[in-house]
Structure formats: C-alpha cells, structure tokens
Design a binder for these strands. Structure first.
Lengths: 336, 336
DNA sequence: GTGAAAGCGCTAACAG
DNA sequence: CTGTTAGCGCTTTCAC
C-alpha cells in the first residue's frame, strides 16, 4: 500500500485521474465556464468514477461563507418551534442553505455554548428564540446577521419577528369579559421572557380596565404546577370562572386538568389559550385560542435573514405579526 | 485603512497580538498543554480582546472531522420526527456535536440532494428516515456511518432502528377482534414504505387468521382521502365497525371525521391508531394506540451512530424496539 | 482553454 | 516551553 490512505478523493485526485490541472476541475464543478466540451466530459467522468464530492470545509474556508444558518430554539419538541423549524428549513433550502439545529432549553448558559459553537462554524446567519438573558454582545460581534424570533433580546436592537402578544392577550381577555366572565385567571410561566410579559400585561390591562379583579399565576410550567394553581383559585374568595393560558402546552394541561377535576368547560370555567393546536377544534368543547401565524412568522424571519446576509443591513424595527382570535366553544357566553 | 479588511480575527492575529507563535495559540485553545501560565494568560487575554473564535472550517479541513451529524427526516413538523429530532439533538450535544437538519418529504429526489449536500459537508455520521427509494450506494460510499431510523433502506444492510410495526399492528388488530369487532378497516398511506407495509401486514394476518374479512384503504395521506375512504366502507356490504389507522396524523383526522359524521366511538366504530399523541387520553373517548418509544428509538439510533463513528463497525442486525398497546376507551368491547 | 501557485485558518511534527 | 513550517482541499489570479 503506497496509497496515502486516502479514502475520500480530493479535487487533485480528480485532476490527476482526468489528466488535467486542478483549476480545470474547479471550473467544472463550478458550472464549467471556459472549459472545452471535451475536457468537461473527461472531468465529469473522472468525478463520477471516483465518487468525488467537493469538500465544503475547504470551500468555505476560502469563500468565508458556509451556506449554513443556525437555528436556536428552546426545544425542538415544542410544536410551536418545530413548525417554525420546518418553515425555516424550507426557506433555507430554497437558498441552497442548510440549517444547524440547536436547543437552548431557555437556559442562558446552554444558549451561550450553542451560539459559540455556531460562531466557530462561521454560519452565515442565525435565527434565535433567545432566552431572557441572551448575550447580545456576543451576537453583535459575531460577524453574521441575527434575527430574533418570537421574542427580542433585552437591551439589543437586533431585528425581531414576533406576534402581537399584548394585543392577543388583550382581545382574548376582552372576549371573555364580553361573554360575561368576571374572575379571569391568567396562567403562564417563563415570566422573564418578554413575550410572556406582554401576554400577562394584555390580560391585566383588560381586566383592570373592566374593573374586574386581577388574578394570575405566573410560574406555571408543567402539569403539576398548573393543577395546583387552578385548584388554589377555584375555592378562593374569588372563585375563577375563566382561564386564560399563555402557552400552548399549558392549555393542553389545563384542559386535561379540568377533565380530571370534573369541571365543565365552559359552564364551570371557560378556557382560552395562546397558540392554536391540532385538536383544538375537536375537543369537547372545542377550545378557543389566540392563533399566531407561526409558519409566516418563521418564513418572514428567514427571508429577513437572507436579506440581511445579502445587503448587510438589518431592519431595526421589530416586525410584529398580527394574531387572530379563534372563538370556539370553550369560551361561550357565561351561563350565569 | 491599511488593514486587510479583516473583520474576523484569525489565529495568527491572536498570535501577533500576544507576541507569540501560532502553535502556542493553538495549544492554548486546545487545552493549554505545555504552555506556561504566563503565556497562557497573555494569549487568553488576546483572544478575549480580539473576540477570537477558532474557525471550524479550518479545523475540520485539517482534522477531517466535522463534529457534525446529519439528520434527514420526511418532515420536521411531524410530531413523531420532531420528538426524534429533539432526542437526537440532545445526544449529539453530549458528544459536542451539532446536527444539520434536512427534510426530504419522502421524496427520493430531494433526499438525494440533501444527502449530497451532507456528504460535501463531510458530516461524521447520518441518521436518516429514508424514502422508499433511497440511494444506498451513495450512502455506502459516503465515508461516514449511517443509521436508518424508523425504516430500513430497501436492499441495503445499513444498521437500522425501528419499532416492531408488524407486531404492533397485529396485537392492535387482535385486541379489536377480542373485543368483538368483525369488520376492521385498516387505513394508511405511504404504501411503499417498509414500515407501512409491516403495519398493513400485521393487520391483514390478524384478521385473516381470525377468519374475518380483510378491509383496507392503503392510499390515505390526508383528511379528504381519509374521509372518502371511511365513507366508502361505512355503507358497503361489510359495514366497518372498527378502524385501525397506521399513522399518527391519520388517527387524528379519523377522530375528527367521526365527529363530523356523527359517528359514536366506539359504538358506531371503534378507533385505534399507531403512535401515541399528546391528547390521546383526553379525547372523548380516549383513543387506544400502539405506542412507539420514539425518544428511546432516537437516542438508541444516535448512540449507535456515535459507536459506529468511533469503532468503524456497523451493527448489521436491525434493532427492533418493542411497542406497547395502550388500551383506552375508543376500542372498548363491542356493544353488539 | 488551461495550468501553476498562492493562500484561506488551523494543527501536527520538528527544532530549538 | 515555544516558534517554524508544511500541508488539509479548494478557488483565484496570472501566465501561457
């Protein structure tokens, strides 16, 4: 074995095999400008027979472009973010770009690790649903444009695409009020996130303006805490007659909890949640929701990213996408 | 401006800035073996002040390792695959590896493009849920190990992790039979996929063995076709009294369709589906399912991949994970 | 049309 | 302990 243990063929191997220079092979794999038909054929044949694939690492080392964007979300398993990931991946594909996927779990430390990882990979751009303590400096000097998705980074003016959470929460709550509910409990979690806060605030403003009591449980992030919160408010001085949930998974939990507790929706308590979900209209009763245009938000963010990658400009003004109140049975008129 | 428009600092910049050689900086960023505390500090400081991040492209060009694995699934939006992606991402992270995400839509052409893309990126390994016409030759010579997930590649012996679909379908159908159902319709799609075929077959064997009629609709991939299929079999010579659905999304569709048609589950028709889902136990009635251990399957596949990356060996025998029949109300005893 | 050569940023010898 | 140097695989002048 004199062969240099070279299992993966390089451009030079193709060149030798075809009896041409390296530059010629390069020309061929880049469209074949200024290459005679004859040479072209020979090189193509060599590439075929050797099973050659140009090394992306070498290419991007020279080009200083990786044809890759990064995506950091709290969790890929969350339907909101997996829908987004799907749309992002699709837009990226149209730009012949691949997506590097990373999960932060909303943990600033993990997030930082992932960002660092992506910086080293010299991604061409990043879409991130930042934690509440995201490191904007790091991103600002990263050398590629970043778009924030679903929430901004505190104290930074990075371009952001998000839904109008405040308005969503407000019209949702107003809808409940209009339908006769008096004690509307807001249940949510991740209280440090901007988006959560906007939702909390929308609810608060609505009830306050209506002269109704402000009831909220803002540290609910799983089934157990949701259950405890609800139970607590069912028998208090102001027994709750409606629930506004600020997150998709929490809404599902609450629906299950109501069933478990034998609560009739909406007779015992109305239920209205942020984020539409697959079976919302097939539950009993169907669940009213504030719907965010996830796919559009994601596509929009991705297009903004590619624009920024080309132009170098970043839109400073956040893009706020409108939400939609989908009224279903779970928030029907209060049967006082 | 004499500066070479070099916005992103390279290792050499750090070296000069710190007044040391390139190798020293390299040593520092690789753990700092054989570096005096003093030099170490100087270099670290330089790195900090310059905002230096080692170029992954350059590193992997030398090392011929990319610290990246690829993941190709039909769709990231499908809950089955997004759960899997989540688990895979997590295991990869523990190995300091990033995941390049690609969607094939079960389309062999797209799949091929994505695979080619990943080969060029010299990924260290690949997890793929292959289409029915995946190019195993391409993968075989790709230069990295590949694990098939959820289904094998026809005519290849690439290591595979999948659920025991045949048995799942069989015990599901047998359960329905035991509960008194006589005309059990199997509804599914993607008939060319191995996994679909195993499910179809499990159902067929079960009904045949019981001397019951074989009823199947195997080209159902959306709501409309599911509805048409069901309607067709409701009024035929053998009116259906139970449905076995072979895919998560189809089960949801069927549940909705039953509601739409005013069919009582299980009185009018029983319903049992492949894949558990979030609200399965909160529907009315709760839906019986065959549950696949998605997360475990995904983790297992990823660990196998990392093993293969290290050892170079590939387990030839497919790993078949056991499934579990989760009996809920939708398949309760037939009220003849 | 085509080839030779420089260099992208890094690490692994090899000297000192 | 530390610096010098030779490539890793590719693209891009610049000659021919």
């Amino acid at each position: 074995m004199k062969k240099k243990k070279k299992s993966i063929p390089a451009l030079m191997d193709v060149a030798r095999y075809a009896g041409v220079g390296a530059a010629t092979v390069s020309r061929v794999i880049n469209g074949g400008q200024n290459v005679s038909a004859k040479t072209m054929a020979a090189v193509t044949k060599a590439i075929e027979e050797l099973g050659y694939h140009p090394s992306h690492a070498a290419r991007s080392l020279r080009a200083a472009r990786s044809k890759t964007i990064g995506l950091i979300v709290p969790s890929v398993a969350d339907p909101f973010f997996s829908s987004a990931a799907s749309a992002i991946q699709e837009v990226a594909r149209e730009h012949e770009t691949l997506v590097l996927l990373a999960a932060s779990e909303n943990d600033p430390v993990r997030e930082r690790e992932q960002v660092t990882s992506l910086i080293q990979r010299r991604i061409d751009g990043l879409i991130i649903a930042p934690s509440d303590a995201a490191d904007s400096d790091l991103l600002q000097h990263a050398g590629f444009p970043t778009i924030c998705f679903d929430r901004p980074i505190k104290g930074s003016d990075l371009p952001t695409v998000l839904a109008d959470s405040y308005r969503g929460a407000k019209i949702a709550t107003e809808h409940l009020i209009r339908n006769g509910y008096k004690n509307i409990l807001c249940i949510g979690g991740y209280a440090k996130l901007f988006t959560s806060q906007r939702r909390f605030r929308g609810h608060k403003d609505a009830v306050t303006r209506a002269g109704l009591p402000y009831l909220a449980e803002l540290e609910v992030e799983d089934y157990a805490s949701a259950r405890a919160a609800l139970v607590r408010h069912l028998s208090g001085p102001k027994p709750v007659d409606a629930i506004f949930s600020t997150k998709n998974t929490t809404t599902l939990d609450l629906y299950k909890i109501c069933r478990e507790l034998g609560l009739q929706i909406p007779q015992s308590v109305a239920l209205l949640g942020f984020d539409d979900f697959e079976l919302a209209d097939a539950l009993d009763p169907p669940i009213s929701v504030v719907r965010q245009p996830v796919q559009q938000m994601a596509s929009r963010a991705t297009e903004m990213l590619f624009d920024a990658m080309v132009s170098g400009h970043q839109t400073k003004r956040p893009v706020t996408m409108d939400i939609e109140l989908v009224v279903r049975g779970s928030s029907a008129k209060h049967s006082k």
